[in-house]
Design a protein around this nucleic acid. Structure first.
Lengths: 238, 238
DNA sequence: AATCATCTGTTCGATTATAGAACACATGCC
DNA sequence: GGCATGTGTTCTATAATCGAACAGATGATT
């Protein structure tokens, strides 16, 4: 019997892994699920899902609506607050400064397996129809300027050693020489992005980036502002 | 401390409960922890903590820095994104409107056991020294206008039935008649708050609130704006 | 109105995942 | 060199977990 179908990684702790999968399924679901639906999505017996569910409910990681359906709970917000709390305090002022002076949405995203996870975001003040990138949103590491910037912090050898199976983008070498990465229409159609690598607590490669519809400034100037902000954030993080 | 100490609720699933406790400890810790420290805080053997830790690491719920120390990971941000994603889209515009017209920080907080958990926040545009209330932050349900507003949505009987052991504040009855709750210096010294009850997805009682240092407007006008915004948010949520 | 269908919640014995000790290895300090 | 600290691995008895079977609740169907 295969504990986890699909990816062949056997987690050391089965029960815990199942509980986390339940949370992942709930987070991906756009609407509350019945216990039976959740159990089916997890591929386990209903009673197993039920016991796991109760435990998660005890910790407020999920809540149940009137119909008994299940959805993510406020405890997750509490746990997520611990993610780079230092980063928030250090990066928020700089992100606000960037967003307002450039009139672009600014954010920090970190590398996570095959994806890029946004952690902190700031939208510009005069928010007409600006691009919003909420914390917790993801996109493939292979797409977009942040991913290229993260790759550009390593050589091709380091990358293939750290991320076997994920191809090293040619733009990364270019970005390394130039100092910043750029992308157009990669993650969201019609949206462009500029990014520079940044080191954040935890040691995971990350990127500081802005997104925009139409560029009003010279990309080199924008990149210079990004690089300066990244340096200030890093120095404040120690 | 043993899991059964303090609150006498034995979680149905031990391993999962321990894993969550590990995350809670990490979220509360202000700095990365060694595995030994984490095991000590959890009250379990190091090898147990190690196995749990590895599983959490597989799901990116925690990451380890160069020294092997442990801290919350980006996966938590991904999971937390699922918490009231609908609420975000419905409430953010209204919160922004409130924050900018009133020049106060606006937020939505939900009732969770003995606490009030902030989920969505918006700071006013002209952010001089405004009060920031980040998502995921908590305060006791017994303190502050949001807690009073949540209590004011129920009668005293309903409250004592739903929250045995937590006293029903006299201000709640008053707030119920008046339509809004107010507090001064309760959660943060020097900070006042106004709040109205609001119903959010998941069925948990919640509050829509603003915080401020000095009031420039009549509290009744502010409360009216809050009530109108709450109604619009609720109607958009369906 | 009665029946059926669907889902939640509980109980219990067999099984198996887990607990925790003991050990091997790496690193920094005296 | 030796000691201290901490990480990572292996192994077996134990106890937590699995999953079936059952009971109760709720709502749809004929």
């Amino acid at each position: 019997m295969t504990p986890t179908a699909g990816s062949a990684q056997a987690s050391p702790s089965q029960t815990l892994s199942r509980g986390i999968r339940a949370l992942e399924i709930l987070a991906d679901a756009q609407h509350p699920l019945t216990i039976a639906e959740l159990a089916d999505a997890m591929g386990v017996h209903r009673s197993v899902a039920y016991r796991i569910l109760r435990t998660l409910e005890d910790h407020s990681l999920l809540v149940r609506d009137d119909g008994g359906r299940v959805q993510p709970g406020p405890g997750l917000a509490v746990l997520a607050r611990g993610v780079s709390r230092n980063l928030q305090t250090a990066a928020l002022p700089e992100l606000t400064q960037l967003a307002n002076t450039l009139t672009m949405s600014a954010f920090v995203a970190v590398w996570d397996h095959e994806e890029c996870v946004t952690l902190v975001t700031v939208d510009p003040r005069h928010t007409g129809a600006t691009v919003v990138q909420h914390p917790g949103s993801r996109h493939p590491i292979s797409a977009g300027a942040p991913g290229i910037a993260i790759q550009s912090a390593m050589s091709e050898q380091e990358w293939t050693a750290a991320a076997p199976g994920i191809p090293y983008r040619a733009e990364a070498a270019e970005a390394r020489l130039r100092g910043y990465a750029a992308s157009h229409d990669e993650v969201i159609s019609g949206v462009s992005s500029l990014a520079v690598p940044i080191r954040v607590p935890g040691g995971r490669p990350a990127a500081l980036a802005v997104v925009y519809i139409r560029a009003a400034q010279d990309p080199r100037e924008v990149a210079a502002a990004l690089a300066a902000a990244a340096e200030r954030i890093e120095s404040q993080l120690g």
